[in-house]
Nucleic acid binder design. Sequence first.
DNA 1: CGGGACGTTGACGGTCGTCAAAATTAGTGG
DNA 2: CCACTAATTTTGACGACCGTCAACGTCCCG
Lengths: 220, 220
Amino acid sequence: MPVDLSVNDLDRIENIIQKRKRVKRGEQLFRNGDSFHALYAIRTGFFKTSVSSTDGREQVTGFQMAGEIMGLDGIVSDRHTCDALALEDAEVCIMPFDRIEELSREINALQHHVHKIMSREIVREHGVMLLLGSMRAEERVAAFLLNLTQRLHARGFSQSELVLRMTREEIGSYLGLKLETVSRTFSKFQEDGIVEVKQKNLHILNAEALKLIVNAAHCE
Amino acid sequence: MPVDLSVNDLDRIENIIQKRKRVKRGEQLFRNGDSFHALYAIRTGFFKTSVSSTDGREQVTGFQMAGEIMGLDGIVSDRHTCDALALEDAEVCIMPFDRIEELSREINALQHHVHKIMSREIVREHGVMLLLGSMRAEERVAAFLLNLTQRLHARGFSQSELVLRMTREEIGSYLGLKLETVSRTFSKFQEDGIVEVKQKNLHILNAEALKLIVNAAHCE
DNA sequence: CGGGACGTTGACGGTCGTCAAAATTAGTGG
DNA sequence: CCACTAATTTTGACGACCGTCAACGTCCCG
């Protein structure tokens, strides 16, 4: 959140949050078609968002953790266009969007902050498109692990230990791979001594090796 | 643009556009790293936007035509994070972003309009992720053609005739395919009597067939 | 303790990438 | 306007990567 704000403005911004909501693991916060009226800030927990095609294929569009914002997809049509499902028990702040817009008109820093959040999401998705469009399986998985650990580290968690809240199938959906390929890639990384995988628990032994895999141009 | 506005407000919004800029085919409007200060609305012409990985792989993130907005990626870090290149001679309106924010605070409809534009871009990218993550080559190409024709049709062009301003390689980059695969898929569609391809000129003979290809669950 | 969801591993095949060559077009300068 | 070169496109042959199908193992939760 922006820092250079008067105490008064900070108070007003915090008042946007009318209430909080608990979402249990396996429950949906919102789903495709729901009417849109608020953005959600994650306080605790872990979510996945996904879209589905008419013929039922699911594409995971992202995994969200504490501090991140969900619901931006709903602004354009006043309806949510994706599903948000809690992968572990979670708590979110409900921020009614009309109040965000109202206050944004009065507090410049908030206005710009909102714009940045949306722009950041666009840039993030550019990165996913690069991953899906041009990387091979090992590169995708390596990039995925590095991204996760980096975000967890920024929240005070370990750089090398993490718990995968999502299934192999959900990882695969996000990365454009089948679950078997994800599993096999984990196994290969383990054989190579890069990671230690024990079900949902993952220990990164050699982050540099992962970075090399991601940045390796595979043809030259 | 929003409709329910006073004449006065409309005037003020139009005054955001300080100047226009011509961009010749092959020229870049902005590039990764450029400092950000404005959004660009396309008046005429056709653009591609793309991001690149450290090792030089290019991913086309979109093709933009008249009426569409470019530059949203730059808001978050005050620097553009992608390249925008004109695929045909073009003219754009330069809209300084600080003026957009300024006026957004006063004109609610403009504020909401800006939010919708950003949300729409996020939703569009969700669709691309679905395409890249779960569709096979023929489905991708079919979806691409339908998307292009639909947008061209909305601008008064033919539903069935179009000129591909981009190369096979650029199409491939956007769709996560190699140029040879794009070319082969066009040839196959032509054999099947779905389209007629003559270099950059494309004639869609059977749009319904394309829709079937896109919506076909390929395994059940 | 038992059942169902999830994960791992193997064998095999298809889709699409790679490499190469030829054809067609576009662009440039004389 | 034409010759010439570069860029783009098409097509073929081949192979790698990853998806598919199947079987088995493991974990979690009631």
